[in-house]
Design a binder for these strands. Structure first.
Lengths: 156, 156
DNA sequence: ATGATAACTGATCCTGAGTATCAAAACGGG
DNA sequence: CCCGTTTTGATACTCAGGATCAGTTATCAT
């Protein structure tokens, strides 16, 4: 697929996903999304800012942060908490995606949703990944918090 | 078990684990470890600092951060990257532990290492946890980074 | 014990990610 | 084409965590 066609598709998806939430598909958000799609690795907001400013000197730092928030909110990107208290981002095409993230080079590999059960045991062979035990944790809501927050979205 | 006996055991483990690395079991580190063990939730360095300063006004902020690093390094505590680019900590007794961390109240539940495979599918029922898809990611080293880093410990 | 050496502490300053604010600009519906 | 809403960019700010350094404390050898 040509780069131009890719941009076209990206723009269309951006438009539909954002406008469904009453938000606008701006040039800056498209730039951020395209940069994300171009990378096979997770990138930080600072990375993106520097990278985008090369071709678009007018873009603002805060705008990159906000665009990333918008994209995550629209389901077009995913946030990763990289060690060192920095958020990194990756574009993601469909709804829920699980990833392998290399803590060395930040390369991300998408994993299909099915068979999470068999996943952990096979990770090292299938992708040559050495899963680091320390970060093999699951985050979510316990029963009480789940009840308390039912209906009320929390984002903090 | 009485509180005193618990302190005793904590102090002994602290001593052996730390001195094996040429580090010293100081009063401050013991304080931090005890505070961690007292909590069934992950706590931030700021939480601990405030909490400890109530009884020990002389303790320094940086010391709390450094003590936590030491404890993690010694395998007595575990670091969690809480959303919002903050590290949270929990005491952990044995080597590798997996946890359920509630993003609402930070309660942590230890999970036995075996049967990671069956885990994900059963999480919601067993503990009443709602696992948040967005953070169900695995971190580790890809094959190339694994080769490159073989032998050389990386901690960054 | 005691003195030398190395690790630790606490105070202070510094960095860097991310947010809040706000006036100016860009949209989009009517 | 106009008006209300959203977004942008610039700036100032917050706050977690790290660096530095002089002073202190623990460990080890004598």
């Amino acid at each position: 697929m040509s780069p131009r066609r890719q941009n076209r598709a990206a723009a269309e998806e951006l438009t539909s996903r954002l406008s469904a939430r009453g938000r606008r598909p701006t040039a800056q958000r498209l730039l951020v999304l395209e940069a994300l799609r171009r990378s096979r690795r997770t990138v930080t907001a600072a990375d993106l800012f520097e990278q985008l400013r090369a071709d678009h000197p007018l873009i603002g730092r805060a705008t990159v942060f906000r665009s990333l928030d918008s994209l995550v909110d629209a389901g077009l990107a995913q946030r990763f908490e990289r060690a060192g208290h920095v958020s990194a981002y990756a574009a993601c095409s469909t709804e829920h995606h699980h990833h392998l993230v290399c803590t060395g080079c930040d390369t991300t590999v998408e994993i299909d949703e099915a068979s999470i059960a068999r996943l952990a045991g096979e990770l090292s062979q299938r992708h040559g990944f050495t899963v680091h035990h320390g970060t093999l944790d699951f985050y979510g809501l316990c029963a009480s918090c789940s009840d308390r927050a039912s209906g009320a979205q929390r984002r903090a």
